[in-house]
Every structure is written in structure tokens, then in C-alpha cells.
């Protein structure tokens, strides 16, 4: 009899865990290369409270498509770090089990909390006495801030978009093809205009002014 009760408890707990971890997330919306919908929902929920609409910047956290940005970043990471970061998203989403938000339903997963509760949860992480907890928040903020402030529209509005810069040709350009490509992608030496500095050791100083602002909508 006791075995049956324990099995029942186990199944109930498993069901709750599965429900909490997987159920109730939207099944529609963009699909990502790496990011799961539930991770995207978490990132969106965090971005919404981290970067509310403001006068200073032309777009809010929600408008900046930060799940899309995080997905591109995850693709660029080595597999181990990619998995670690995804684990961090999951950890954060469910850490309300350990550190619940104040008010009704404070144990719900992060993305299901109200805006005010989410901000309070983030505040608690930021001011925590536990260094590790603060670092986890810093890591999460790092991913989202790079996507948000680094968004071409944010950078454009701040006047901080990357310079328009042409790369003069140097000797190395005849040695290294683009990464992953073959030697046939190397430029032809004969096609180089005579004025190009062939060796960095011979290149004359270039002078400012730089040209501001690459195309801010498309960069």
C-alpha cells in the first residue's frame, strides 16, 4: 500500500514539474534555431520589465526582439556554453520556487508573474547578499542588454552606431580566405588598385575624421 502511495506522490510531482516546465507556453510565434518557445517566453518577460518604453530610446525591450537576438548569440556559442546559458534561463524561470515573488501566486514561474512581481524578483536578485545570485542576474542582463542597447535603432538614437569604415587591403588579405571557405575566395593580387597599401609596414597613416553612422536600420 505504501508503495502505491509513494508512486502516486511521485507521479503527481512529476506531473506538476512537467506542467510547470512545459505546459501553458504559447505554441505560436516565431521559431528559433536553438531557443525553445518557453525560453523565448522567459526572455520576453524579462525584457519587458528590464527595458520599459522610455523617452530616451526609440524602442522597448519587447520591440527589440531579444529572443531573436539571444538565439543568434546561442548559435554562435560553443555547445557547452550554449547549454549552460539555456540552463541559466530555465533556472531563472523557475527560481521563484525557492525565492518566490511577493503577493498572490508568487511561486508561479517568472514569465507568468505580473510585471510588478517580475521587477521585484529581478530587484531581489540584484541586491542579493549571495554573490552567485548577483552574477546570474548579471549574466542574464548581459545577454539582454547587448541585444537591446546593441540594437541598430538604439545605437542610432544614441549616436553610437559603428563607424562607416573601409578596410584597406593588406598583405594578409591574400593569405586568409573567409572562415570556412576555400583558397579560391582569396582576392586576386592583380585586381588591386595600385594605391592600396600592400604591406601593413608600408601603409601610410590614415587620418580622421571618421564617417559616422552605418545604415542604422539594417546594420
Amino acid at each position: 500500500m505504501a508503495d502505491i502511495i509513494w508512486a502516486g506522490i511521485f507521479i503527481a510531482l512529476l506531473g506538476m514539474a512537467l506542467g510547470r516546465g512545459w505546459a501553458g507556453y504559447s505554441r505560436t510565434g516565431p521559431s528559433y534555431a536553438v531557443l525553445a518557445r518557453r525560453e523565448a517566453a522567459f526572455l520576453e518577460a524579462a525584457a519587458e520589465v528590464l527595458f520599459p518604453p522610455s523617452e530616451g530610446l526609440p524602442l522597448s525591450g519587447v520591440e527589440a526582439d531579444l529572443p531573436g537576438y539571444a538565439d543568434r548569440y546561442l548559435v554562435a556559442l560553443p555547445v557547452r556554453q550554449r547549454n549552460l546559458l539555456r540552463a541559466l534561463f530555465v533556472l531563472f524561470e523557475h527560481a521563484t520556487l525557492v525565492w518566490p515573488a511577493a503577493g498572490r501566486g508568487g511561486f508561479r514561474r517568472f514569465s507568468s508573474l505580473s510585471e510588478g512581481q517580475r521587477l521585484d524578483v529581478l530587484r531581489a536578485w540584484e541586491s542579493s547578499g549571495l554573490y552567485l545570485r548577483r552574477m546570474v542576474l548579471t549574466a542574464l542582463k548581459a545577454v539582454l542588454i547587448l541585444g537591446y542597447v546593441g540594437h541598430p535603432r538604439s545605437l542610432g538614437a544614441l549616436g553610437l552606431a559603428p563607424w562607416k569604415l573601409e578596410s584597406p587591403r593588406v598583405e594578409a588579405d591574400y593569405l586568409y580566405p573567409p572562415i570556412g571557405e576555400g583558397r579560391d575566395r582569396l582576392p586576386d593580387r592583380a585586381s588591386v588598385p595600385a594605391s592600396s597599401p600592400l604591406s601593413p609596414l608600408l601603409s601610410p597613416p590614415l587620418s580622421p575624421p571618421l564617417i559616422p553612422g552605418v545604415d542604422q536600420e539594417t546594420s
Binding site: 520589465v49 528590464l50 527595458f51 520599459p52 522610455s54 530616451g56 530610446l57 521587477l119 529581478l122 530587484r123 540584484e126 548579471t138 542582463k141 548581459a142 542588454i145 547587448l146 541585444g147 537591446y148 542597447v149 546593441g150 538604439s154 545605437l155 544614441l158 553610437l160
Partner: peptide
């Protein structure tokens, strides 16, 4: 610039103000 913004303190409006 976005990498430098990571060291900005605060959350929500206070954080976005620092970005500005």
C-alpha cells in the same frame, strides 16, 4: 557601447535612463 552598458546599475526605468 552595448557591452559597456552591461555595467550600468539598476533595472527598468532607472537602467534605461543610464543607457541614455
Amino acid at each position: 557601447p552595448a557591452a559597456l552598458a552591461v555595467r550600468m546599475p539598476g533595472l527598468g526605468e532607472a537602467l534605461v535612463k543610464h543607457f541614455g
